[in-house]
Nucleic acid binder design. Sequence first.
DNA 1: CTGAAAGCGCTTACAG
DNA 2: CTGAAAGCGCTTACAG
Lengths: 328, 328
Amino acid sequence: MAKVTIKDIAKEAGVSISTVSNALNDVSVVKEETRKRILEIADKMHYIPDLNGRNLKAKSTKVIGLVTRSLKGPYFATLADLMFWECVKYGYELNIFVTNSSRSALTTILGNRVDGSVILSSSIDDKGAKRILDQETPTIFLDRELKGPKAASILFDSYADGMLVADTLLKRGVTRFAIMNGAFDNYDALNRNKGFLERLRLNNIRIEPEYELYGAFDRSIACEAMSSFLKEGLEIPEAIFAANDLSAFGCIDALTANGYRVPEDVMVVGVDDVEMCQWYSPKLTTVKTGYEKQGIMAVKKLIKMINGEEEGDIVKLHGHLIERESTR
Amino acid sequence: MAKVTIKDIAKEAGVSISTVSNALNDVSVVKEETRKRILEIADKMHYIPDLNGRNLKAKSTKVIGLVTRSLKGPYFATLADLMFWECVKYGYELNIFVTNSSRSALTTILGNRVDGSVILSSSIDDKGAKRILDQETPTIFLDRELKGPKAASILFDSYADGMLVADTLLKRGVTRFAIMNGAFDNYDALNRNKGFLERLRLNNIRIEPEYELYGAFDRSIACEAMSSFLKEGLEIPEAIFAANDLSAFGCIDALTANGYRVPEDVMVVGVDDVEMCQWYSPKLTTVKTGYEKQGIMAVKKLIKMINGEEEGDIVKLHGHLIERESTR
DNA sequence: CTGAAAGCGCTTACAG
DNA sequence: CTGAAAGCGCTTACAG
């Protein structure tokens, strides 16, 4: 059976396609009786509207896009889930576009499929980001610092978070540090590292290259990095700052497997405050970045920009330290 | 600045819109020189195609939809991620549609936004599922047993998995069981429960209502259910079958918090083999359902149906037991 | 309250 | 190799 269109319904109901369209969209002009009859026929004929036809003409899709390159990590699912519920509140749908091509990300964002997009920025290159800035589709960047008339950024203040961790540890008299870095090209990984090191520098403390490990935000990779480090036989640092919780777990996995105790021999601090921090042993000290807030704020802001109520701006979310067993 | 269309490019380039369209889509008829010039102009004018216009006419979108109601749980992210990479292989994009309305799920699936969809079935009601069966857009159900000319199902054989766990425990001489059920309306939760109980019944073993707990696939809920159970002062079972790994962790959390040892006092078995089974203490015995295979098979099958190379059918994936520390 | 008509931005036979 | 024209399925002023 071929696809049923409003034309078919119009014929069946003996009315014009305009009337069918109005009835289907609850435009109030239609006589109640006509409306009912049309809806019944549409249902009986198994009518499903073609969204391409609809969106081509209509100004609004009532859907918000989330553009990303990867679905991995505990962060993404929570972010998307919270965004979804916020969308529901405002009568929007959430579509997630997974792509590793900056070109097709751009087409998705600006191709009139959505009323506005939240962009996990690794999904788009600098040139693409620039292009987004000077046009009219509302857009929010989550890990790139940009703004335009219809483009905003909602970020973690990762530089400040890094400083916060450094200060806390310095206050306890720690002088020998190691750092477990996050993904190379990531805004937050970079800034956590910078803020942390900057603070140490102010206190005339340096971290030797052998004490800068690479954990890629990943538990297994961090675990192996830590293991290799331990095999080298260098002096153990007093504290390790991991760029996120997962890589902090990886650190501790390796440490305990090698007979070290946390926090007695080494303290470890993560970032994110994922749920497992409370299940893990030792319970992990971490920076709560407020990433639950980020998604919600993004949707709220996006809808305000869609409605023309606000312009783009840059918001940075401050984290706060949650002290648990992995430090003392 | 208004939206740039092929019309604008045509004017700028002094050619017709047909030629612009052909150039943009690499249709080989266009003279190389013309094509180049048009592409340059398109780029300079910041042209982005309108996907609604395109898809309205074109037969194929080269995108596959994944329709779901929830993004929670370790299962979803892995599923979606693997599906994505499989899509990439075949030149498709993956769009994830999050919705809690069966109506809008249906519109998404059949509204010509995608070439085919994978449906996490809780996102659609029975009536909607029926309607999907008798039409032409290829569709795969992941936890509903249905088939049609263009509709297939790829499921876990959860009934068999439940039996497998029962058999394993029976073989060790266990006679007193408890069960931690999964979500009420879930295909797999239901069948794991049924298969398990059926096997016990064959051995003349019953589970009293007080020993059927409800964990909703969730760690915290399972933990509380187990805690309440322990407070009642009933005799402790020799083994607990949890409907998934997360709720198994919840069980064990409660047990160890109350001074019981796993597996010495009680054995616990989960389902899924999520990564944490290996990190958790005790390492969890579980059924590996092969959920990594499911997403990949779904995409492969979907594309074959899109290409008209295969019809719908029903595939059930068998699990196998992975024995670790939580049983002996 | 209903219908005829234009048009959204594209693709795709078809003619030249 | 290029262009004129039809049409995909809808919505939306506008006339009646």
